[in-house]
Design a protein around this nucleic acid. Structure first.
Length: 872
RNA sequence: GCGAAUGUGGCGAAAUUGGUAGACGCGCUGGAUUUAGGUUCCAGUGGGGCAACCCAUGGGAGUUCGAGUCUCCCCAUUCGCACCA
């Protein structure tokens, strides 16, 4: 069969062939979670369609596959089953590899890699050491979620409603030393090079640009005295024009000023502690109720000399900028609410009040907000339109526009050595230390005498022992004396090995390059990357639009600057597939944790009008609650196993249905209604081929002498070929390509003609169909191509080009509108002039009825499409 | 809260550059064949009138000869928010 043929002929083995145009098609590698889910099937089918299409178009293709094999779920499974994460991971890989193979993907399995293997992660460690040398990798403290009961660091995912998932204890924020990669060093380049990525979706580029978040503003200080010492409270603002309206400052709970003030203030100390509770998640911090407490400390306004009170605010983040902000309640919504809540002064310094043209939001904020307008569009206009607001109540700055005021104020601050203009990035350095076992060890040795010593290259890799079983109370590596105890590479004295491992995003930041040289034991990559990289087409879920893709771009640039690779960007073209979603069902017992039920185990209840009235569990008939629609995930137990689909209908149907269900970029709410339709279509096609072949292969026929219906069918075949080529090759809309092929199949079925001419036209159409379908449903196409009399395999056939002569038409149908409403259709010769089309349109009976008795004001003729007659 | 997207029949969707709204498929209804059917084939299928026509692309305004498509406001859903991957 087809898979045996590909295996025997090594059809998908990729070899570097200088001079032959390559096509590197990469799908994001899977995490070996256990079994494939629908998102995988979608992702890898898209990649496979493009790979096979490009191969048939003469490109030297590479489609590799590997495993993003380190990560948290393996540790969770270990805790649940007492099995080492390594065993669980390797078992999953074996199972999922079989599943992938059963789907018949055109993968070069000789290049398979797994990130948990020392021969792979050795190079994580190696490049980390190069980054240390360059100062890109460095150590500083970072904030983590701390479970006080289990005495362990929690991932954000393990924090549920501010509590540890296993212990239920309130999570605390804790500062610990970590290694960081200085991605901000590349911020400007990462932003600028987005311009090179014209083949990336606009939305991804927008998200990345916003994430990097360049803003030009002013960094300045409020001087103050603390225990007689002169200190400065630094802040950053993009709205320096409002500095004269500052009425208070707010600092994070972790800010030194807060800590100092709390020393002699029990209430404040308690508040600071309260602020430190809860998670480090930004989404949560952004939605919490804004709370604050005065520190009792005042600072001096750098320009007015006024005394400004300093508050501790639970909404100010230490990891952000300076960990302190200036507050201008009159011109910032959040500051406004805070000031209202705590009775702080509000001082208007910009004229963007009642004189603004846009509607006021006073009704929303209350009457005393009438002078302030903070609608989104207004805010944007404010930056764009100098006319929109001028400084007032601002002393010497009165009357200045935004940019004039910023310039003048920055200059004055600079003259006082209290500040200056500064470019600020929203992007933060990448903390890669994880206090977890199942990851790549960070190659550092801690020596009491020599400090933190990098592991010498010759001692790489630092191998992770594979037999630990985590128990949820911290990193088991700490208990492994054989791992921890070592000799200092510098002084030879006993020392301790670092037990933190790397963020798994490190592993996935360069695997695409390793596929080019997977067998090289001596180097991270070699000259083969020059042939294959950059990736021509990268395919993966939209959920990776920011982090993974940004980290990969950064890592690639570091590799470039280390002399390992060439080129600025790793991924030329990006296709972000939409998520596959499914409904979430659960029960929440009065006591205890939520239990999620798989949609396959739930029956939906409808009333007579087909309205949903509820859902019950199949096993007990009792109701379950709906948690809405969400990404298929293990934690929500709403995944659908594609294996049953494959078992029931076969790989081709699963692939075809997946591609037919929706365009690849669109979110897909899963439903397997309609799978049978895809299967039916393939069966019908197969029957059509069998019937055609059993009548014998056609003799040569003279195309010119074909009767009209056969000419039409032939034209449709070539039109379909042109459309499908465009849909797959350019638009990547596989659903419309399949629909077009279905139409052609239907058209063949309608021709009831046994002549040699009909056979000949049918033969050509069936050959087109087989080729057009072969990237999507390769198994049936493989068989069908042979049945149609070809000795070569369809995978080795060339993608045909439509015959321009066959596409020619002599008449066109034109739509006639009267006042923009459809009133008739007329047939016109292709070469008809505008004037003739107009005459024919007006002559149409239905059109005449609507035009008669009225004055024709205007006639719009869109060539080849429509005529619109405008009457009074 | 911030950033990005999406919203069209009973359902998945199509309409590619502002030009026929609903291609293709599912489901449903009726019929034929089979008469065991998770088979095959034919016809119908947005709503209202059942004819001429009218209404309809999340809601509301606007631009245009013409808007699903462009502009503004609003609503809902999904993704991301730095330790899930």
């Amino acid at each position: 069969d087809a898979q045996q043929y590909w295996e025997k002929h090594q059809s998908f083995k990729a070899t570097e062939t200088p001079g032959r145009e390559k096509y590197y098609c990469l799908s994001m590698f899977p995490y070996p979670s256990g079994k494939l889910h629908m998102g995988h099937v979608r992702n890898y089918t898209i990649g496979d369609v493009l790979t096979r299409y490009m191969r048939m178009n003469g490109r030297n293709v590479l489609q590799p596959m590997g495993w993003d094999a380190f990560g948290l779920p393996a540790e969770n499974a270990a805790m649940a089953n007492g099995v080492p994460p390594a065993r669980w991971t390797y078992d999953n890989i074996a199972y999922m590899k079989r599943q992938l193979m059963s789907l018949g993907f055109a993968i070069d399995w000789d290049r398979e890699l797994a990130t948990c293997k020392p021969e792979y992660y050795k190079w994580n460690q190696w490049l980390f050491l190069r980054m240390l040398e360059k100062g890109i990798a460095y150590k500083k403290t970072g904030v983590v979620n701390w479970d006080p009961v289990d005495q362990t660091v929690l991932a954000n995912e393990q924090v549920i409603d501010g509590r540890g998932w296993r212990t239920g204890a309130l999570v605390e924020r804790r500062e610990i030393p970590m290694y960081y990669l200085e991605i901000t060093r590349y911020a400007a380049e990462l932003l600028a090079d987005l311009d090179q990525l014209s083949e990336w979706p606009e939305r991804v580029r927008a998200m990345q640009a916003n994430w990097i978040g360049k803003s030009v503003g002013v960094r300045f200080a409020f001087p103050y005295k603390l225990d007689g010492r002169a200190e400065k409270l630094w802040v950053f603002t993009t709205r320096a024009d409002t500095i004269m309206g500052v009425t208070f400052c707010a600092v994070a709970a972790e800010h030194p000023l807060a800590a100092h003030a709390a020393k002699n203030n029990l209430k404040l100390a308690a508040f600071v502690e309260e602020c430190k509770r809860g998670t480090v998640m930004e989404a949560d911090l952004a939605t919490i109720e804004k709370k604050g407490m005065p520190t009792g400390i005042t600072v001096t306004h750098p320009l007015t000399g006024e005394q400004i009170p300093v508050w501790v605010g639970n909404y100010v983040l230490m990891g952000y900028g300076e960990g302190a902000v200036m507050a201008v309640p009159a011109h910032d919504e959040r500051d406004f609410h805070f000031a209202r809540q705590y009775g702080l002064a509000i001082k208007q310094v910009i004229t963007n009040g009642i004189e603004m043209k846009r509607k006021s939001r006073s009704d929303f904020f209350g009457s005393d907000y009438a002078y302030y307008d903070f609608s989104e569009s207004n805010w944007k206009d404010w930056y764009a339109d100098k006319e929109n607001g001028l400084c007032i109540n601002s002393g010497k700055y009165d009357g200045l526009t935004y940019s004039e005021a910023v310039d003048a104020i920055a200059a004055d601050l600079k003259a006082k050595s209290l500040g200056d203009k500064q470019v600020m990035w929203r992007l933060r350095d990448w903390g890669i230390s994880r206090q977890r076992y199942w990851g790549c060890p960070i190659p550092i040795i801690h020596c009491d005498r020599c400090g933190d010593v990098p592991v010498p290259d010759k001692d790489l890799p630092v191998v992770l022992p594979e037999d630990c079983v985590p128990d949820g109370t911290g990193n088991p590596l700490n208990k492994r004396a054989d791992f921890v105890n070592c000799a200092c590479p510098k002084c030879g004295q006993p020392a301790r090995r670092e037990t933190d491992t790397m963020d798994t995003f490190v592993d996935s930041s360069w695997y695409y390059a390793r596929y080019c040289a997977p067998d090289n034991a001596k180097a991270m990559v070699d000259e083969r990357v020059k042939y294959w990289m950059p990736v021509d087409q990268y395919i993966g879920g939209i959920e990776h639009a920011i982090l993974h893709l940004l980290y990969s771009r950064f890592w690639w640039k570091v590799m470039r600057d280390t002399g390992l690779v060439h080129g600025d960007e790793p991924f030329m073209r990006l296709l972000t597939q939409g998520m596959v979603l499914n409904e979430i069902f659960f029960r929440k017992p009065a006591s205890g944790r939520i239990v999620y039920y798989n949609p396959a185990d739930v029956d939906l209840k409808f009333d007579v009008d087909r309205n949903r009235i509820g859902a019950v569990l199949k096993s007990d008939g009792l109701p379950v609650e709906s948690g809405g629609i969400g990404t298929m995930s293990k934690s929500k137990n709403n995944g659908v196993d594609p294996q049953s689909l494959i078992d029931q209908y076969g790989a081709d149907t699963a692939r075809l249905f997946m591609m037919f269900a929706a365009p690849p970029e669109m979110t897909l709410e899963w439903s397997d209604e309609g799978v049978a339709g895809a299967h039916r279509f393939l069966k019908r096609l197969w029957r059509l081929v069998a019937e055609h072949v059993s009548a014998g292969l056609p003799a040569r026929t003279d195309i010119a002498k074909l009767p009209e219906p056969l000419k039409d069918l032939r034209r449709l075949a070539h039109q379909t070929l042109a459309k499908v080529t465009d849909d797959i090759g350019r638009r990547r809309t596989f659903n419309t390509a399949i629909a077009a092929v279905m139409e052609l199949v239907n058209a063949i079925g309608r021709i009831d003609d046994t002549s040699e001419g009909a056979k000949s036209v049918r033969q050509e159409a069936l050959e087109f169909i087989t080729i057009m379908l072969s990237p999507i449903a390769p198994h049936i196409s493989h068989a069908s191509w042979h049945a149609l009399g070809h000795r070569e395999a369809v995978i080795d056939a060339r993608w045909p080009e439509p015959d321009a002569a066959a596409l020619k038409q002599d008449k066109l149908e034109i739509v006639v509108q009267v006042n923009g409403k459809l009133r008739g259709r007329v047939s016109v010769p292709v070469q008809a002039l505008e004037e003739q089309v107009r005459e024919i349109a007006l002559a149409d009976e239905a059109v005449a009825r609507h035009v008669s008795g009225k004055a024709v004001k205007k006639v719009i003729v869109v060539p080849g499409k429509l005529v619109n007659i405008v009457v009074a």
